[in-house]
Design a protein around this nucleic acid. Structure first.
Lengths: 225, 225
DNA sequence: GCAAAAAAGTGTTGCATTTACACTTTCAAT
DNA sequence: ATTGAAAGTGTAAATGCAACACTTTTTTGC
């Protein structure tokens, strides 16, 4: 068989990425969802997605798609799964790879979000989404929760400086259950890569709460020995 | 934009699946690898792979590809990751989704394996593989190890009936470290879904070892309450 | 200026899980 | 009858995890 024929006898498919974009506000996780003002499935809710272009890796496509909506191009993102059932997109056949992304909800570009008719929706208020996007959300949520239990990825949902109460509330939202304050702080204290900045936050407490930051170098150091 | 145009302005890609096929023999994990007697990359080592066809889901494609090589179509399989860098396949652009599969190494079709010029290779003797297949193997191994630590998926590498010594040797191979025999048996005893068959295996011991089997119903029951 | 409110911050104990550890039993082969 | 080879079995120490309540600080309202 000639090398060319090896490939050309096989079909080609559209490839897309869909992004499950997590934010954290008011003690709850939210997703950034589109109320589609475009076809297909105009009027329905969906994830932000887009087609993979020539010469663009899947990771790059996911990054571009998230940046188109949020204006942020340095988000923490991870591939979740690829969905390839024929008929999953009722228009044409499309293979779609889902990525989750973590956003500091204070930072996104409001104009872009508005232009896409996108909205932050709390996890327990998520409407039915088009195609197989419901399942993508379930899978992404499970994977993100798993990763958050293993690595401090959740920090990407907070500003650079944060209080321990914010951090605890975040992890309670991720895990979906209350955490004992003293045990939580003991655990954090044992992580030398979460360090005091010296700053004090007085926005949510009369007394004032110490600010902390994540130190990537110290974190990497823990594994390089 | 007309619905058709929505899709057609975007490029299409070949879609492939590559299978990381695990077996267990002589106390070690092995992979079923091809010494390619076909183009591209003839003469080199690779994973078993194939293109996704029209009307075929990714899962179905992976199942078909594994069955083409092993003759077994009911393998435990899980999607690992999709690799989409441009240039990952030097011929044409191909998006490839990796699946791992677990095989009872006593059962595969030897003629098919021979026809494909495939060989079982022990984990620590794996040669360099083409394209990004080395990375696929690393990712699949990590994912399989994780899953084996959480669910009894490893059982798919053993015959229906197995001794506790076999099971322990398997888990030592998966984890890559020795396990205390009494602690291991205590843990297994606590799993009511691993049950004695009443049979006795005398092939590897004068005394004879009790045979066990995995009870899927009891296992499912543990989570349905 | 005093009292109340609201969040930050701080250790100890009991319980459960995990780990370490060595000898006996059985049976086939010689 | 002895030997060899793998199967099978329980306890004690240590570690990790979960439960639990009060003090401190500062602002605000009286």
């Amino acid at each position: 068989m000639a090398p060319q024929a090896y490939y050309s006898i096989h079909p080609k498919f559209h490839a897309a990425v869909d992004c499950i974009i997590f934010g954290f506000e008011e003690g709850e996780l939210s997703l950034l969802l589109l109320q589609r003002n475009f076809e297909p499935a105009k009027g329905q809710w969906s994830l932000m997605g887009g087609f993979v272009e020539e010469g663009e890796s899947l990771d790059d496509a996911a990054r571009r798609v998230c940046a188109e909506l949020t204006g942020l191009s340095d988000l923490y993102m991870r591939q979740v799964h690829t969905y390839g059932d024929p008929g999953r997109d009722p228009g044409e056949r499309v293979l779609s790879t889902a990525y989750y992304a973590l956003v500091d909800i204070k930072k996104y570009d409001h104009a872009l979000v508005k232009a896409h008719n996108a909205h932050w929706v709390k996890l327990n208020e998520i409407p039915h989404l088009i195609f197989d996007h419901d399942r993508m959300v379930q899978d992404a949520l499970r994977f993100m929760r798993y990763q958050a239990g293993v690595k401090p990825v959740g920090i990407n949902l907070l500003p650079e400086e944060f209080t321990l109460t914010q951090l605890q509330t975040l992890y309670e939202a991720i895990q979906g259950e209350a955490i004992d304050k003293r045990n939580f702080r003991k655990r954090i204290a044992a992580m030398d890569y979460i360090e005091k900045t010296g700053g004090i936050d007085k926005t949510s407490s009369r007394k004032g709460a110490a600010l902390y930051r994540f130190n990537q170098d110290k974190y990497d150091g823990n594994f390089k020995i």
